[in-house]
Design a protein around this nucleic acid. Structure first.
Length: 342
DNA sequence: GTCATACATCCGAATGCATG
DNA sequence: CATGCATTCGGATGTATGAC
């Protein structure tokens, strides 16, 4: 996938919000900052020297992208905080020569490591920035893979909510297939057809397209790769339609043909359209955005829903609280048993 | 004399605008 | 895109003033 950091705000954010990638990048490039207020800081001068550009060039970029940089941690220090920064600067062992003019500066623009990377992603005139970008793109994919032992395919399972959603979904799925057994005439395509209809209602793709986008192998199950929010919504659709099907079959006092069932689903979808709309919108956004960031997968039909992930999202799937499914089952064995016996 | 305070001046960084 | 210039701001520095 072509990710041009200089022009894509989305891709920049997806890297800058990923603390795990930032940590690795910091450790890999030898550009130590000055520790100040528990963050590594760099003066404008240091940044300019790193990228081998004029300080004025840095100025221009700050001017143009002020809000983006400020969001990444760029700020102008004054008064007391500036005084403290100067102390930290002087005491820092990484700083070889103490700058005379800095000592007298009444205000000083300071970058965090994030803001430093941010400007590096935008600088088109620096050869070093170009190298840095290439390096970042390699590192970020590696960082996620490394964190997950090389498997982003099941990153959806690392989140706290996944397990309970998956179990609930499993139960609703059973009701759904039971309903198809009880109220629809035997037909070997019925499960697949109706399931695809549910998928298309929710995220516009059928199982086959979804598999291609996520590069799933034949044996790998589609649902095991879905995020908890998607599973919850699938549950809702399956549960809702099971009921709908039951009512119509009982009213007609017979099993329905597959074609009737398909028509019935279209009715169901039409009727529930506005009810599900908010959840569907949310789920589409989550799914498309996460798959872009984590799995490097583009859901073409959902591309208008893609946004950058927040730091919290990265934490949720990569952070302390995220776990392999196996660990999660062990940690939640009681919950697991309770849900299973329902 | 010294100490605190008020005021004036100077300087450098940031910022904005203009130019080559 | 680099450079030059003017403006603004606030810290640093210096000076004057007055109380004790």
């Amino acid at each position: 996938m072509n990710k041009d950091l200089t022009t894509s705000n989305l891709h920049r954010r997806n890297i800058l919000n990923n603390n795990y990638a930032l940590e690795i990048i910091y450790n890999e490039i030898s550009f130590p900052g000055i520790m100040f207020e528990s963050k590594y800081r760099f003066t404008k001068k240091q940044v300019a020297e790193f990228f081998e550009i004029d300080e004025r060039t840095v100025d221009r970029y700050i001017e143009k992208n002020k809000s983006e940089f400020e969001e990444s941690g760029y700020e102008v220090l004054k008064f007391n905080r500036l005084k403290e920064f100067k102390v930290a600067y002087v005491n820092d062992t990484n700083v070889a020569n103490i700058d005379e003019s800095l000592q007298k500066a009444p205000s000083l623009g300071v970058f965090t490591f994030r803001a430093f990377l941010n400007i590096g992603m935008l600088l088109t005139e620096s050869e070093k920035a170009k190298l840095l970008r290439a390096f970042i793109l390699d590192i970020v994919i590696d960082a996620i893979n490394q964190k997950l032992g090389g498997n982003t395919k099941y990153i959806n399972q690392r989140e706290e909510e996944f397990l309970s959603s998956a179990i609930k979904e499993h139960n609703y799925r059973q009701e759904f297939t039971n309903a198809l057994d009880n109220y629809v005439e035997p037909n070997k395509f019925k499960y697949a057809q109706l399931t695809n209809k549910v998928y298309k209602s929710i995220f516009k793709e059928d199982a086959k397209e979804y598999r291609q986008i996520l590069k799933l192998k034949n044996k790998e199950s589609v649902r095991s790769t879905m995020y908890s929010e998607v599973l919850d919504l699938v549950s809702s659709y399956e549960n809702g339609f099971s009921d709908f099907l039951k009512n119509h079959s009982e009213k007609a006092n017979r099993k329905l043909r597959l074609s009737e069932t398909n028509t019935l689903y279209d009715q169901f979808e039409h009727l529930t359209n506005s009810i599900y709309e908010p959840l569907r919108e949310k789920v589409r956004g989550l799914m498309a955005s996460r798959d872009m960031a984590f799995r490097d997968a583009l859901h073409e039909k959902l591309k208008n829903y893609i946004t950058h992930l927040t730091t919290e999202e990265f934490d949720k799937f990569l952070g302390e609280k995220s776990l392999d499914l196996e660990d999660r089952i062990l940690n939640n064995i009681d919950v697991f048993k309770r849900l299973k016996d329902r």
